[in-house]
Design a protein around this nucleic acid. Structure first.
Lengths: 197, 197
DNA sequence: AAACATCTTGACCAGATGGTCAAACCAAAT
DNA sequence: ATTTGGTTTGACCATCTGGTCAAGATGTTT
């Protein structure tokens, strides 16, 4: 079944509201208003708030989790890969949603954690890729797990907590946006530095 | 006026509930239950939900913002300072609250941003400290702002989004906790690598 | 013990909230 | 024109929510 136009408008509105107000704070009436339909219509498409939330959350996991695994093809020329990956990651994260997912995972881990786990298969591709480079002596001889954490941190945090970072940098929203654009390159360089021999 | 015992219990309970459910999702009855008093008593101490929230939020800013400025004393021996700072930062962040602050700043920036700004005075101490080291040729000759972002990212993200990171590392909560303890040293080392000539 | 100030609470209220439903609407098929 | 199927909605409901208040408890001063 293709999603109808109305359904798409609902999903877009629901993303906006859930992201800003969280599952508990989101109001069905507000989502309906944002989508330009009545609350009864909203309930016609998604019988309950929870079903609508589940759809949004699962769409996010479906779009983010696979991204975290784009290290499959095994060229040894790793530096361009890092740069490309960092850019991709930051682009996706900049459309928010990570803060939302973290918050909801924190609020109801029992329900939401298994749902994310379902999307992951096998060991983490970055870790295995790094180990293969390490065996060939092409990168620094170190445990790649802190590097994985660092990579996700550098890419995710600036878009998750922009207000606080902008404050530390004494920037307004506009200056911060411009800064973050160029930051993608800096982050990639820093990561290369972490991995280099 | 010293905070009474009951007031302390209220604040502790409110932190727990606000952190988990957010301002919109938090329920005064739940906070009262958690504090072991009646809802009416809760309203006796804090007339409205908003006043209670403001108190919690301001307490957090008061405890976090000053921490971001512990680069005052100007020894040129910067490496131990980085290590010490990273440990301090991660210790404070590990008691959660950052996710909460980011979420609330995202939900109502107009109200909350000025409140954080009030705590900050002058330029960022890390940036000026790095510039002084840079002028003496003791560190890498580079714009320190991406380094500041990297530092906060490395320290903040692992405690803000533990579930997703643990998933990437294919760890359960217990393994992740153990990993993060040792990660503090790794993060400090990575930061030193970023700053070294 | 009486007067006083400070806490504590059950009962209550007005407004909001998720969800339901019968009636109306509308386009395509007959 | 009428039927048929999916879609839309105003009105409605039970329950929940932040907040109030009068009455009582508790402790301190005189």
């Amino acid at each position: 079944m293709e999603p109808t136009d109305t359904e798409k408008r609902i999903l877009k509105a629901a993303m906006l509201v859930f992201e800003r107000d969280g599952f508990l704070g989101a109001r069905m009436q507000v989502i309906a208003d944002e989508a330009g339909i009545s609350k009864a219509s909203l309930h016609y498409y998604f019988r309950t708030k929870e079903k609508l939330f589940d759809r949004i959350f699962d769409d996010y996991t479906a779009s983010i989790i696979p991204l975290l695994s784009t290290w499959e093809d095994g060229t040894d020329d790793w530096q361009p890969k890092v740069k490309h990956f960092v850019k991709e990651l930051m682009r996706v994260f900049s459309e928010s949603s990570l803060l939302f997912m973290a918050q909801e995972l924190h609020r109801d881990p029992k329900k939401l954690e298994p749902r994310m786990a379902k999307r992951r298969t096998g060991p983490n591709p970055f870790l295995t890729y790094y180990e293969s480079l390490r065996a060939k002596g092409l990168v620094r001889d170190t445990d790649p797990r802190p590097l994985l954490v660092a990579m996700q941190s550098l890419c995710a945090y600036p878009s998750m907590n922009p207000k606080m970072l902008a404050g530390s940098l004494r920037m307004n929203a506009k200056e911060y946006d411009a800064f973050i654009t160029s930051y993608a390159d800096d982050a990639a360089d820093l990561l290369v530095r972490m991995m280099q021999k």
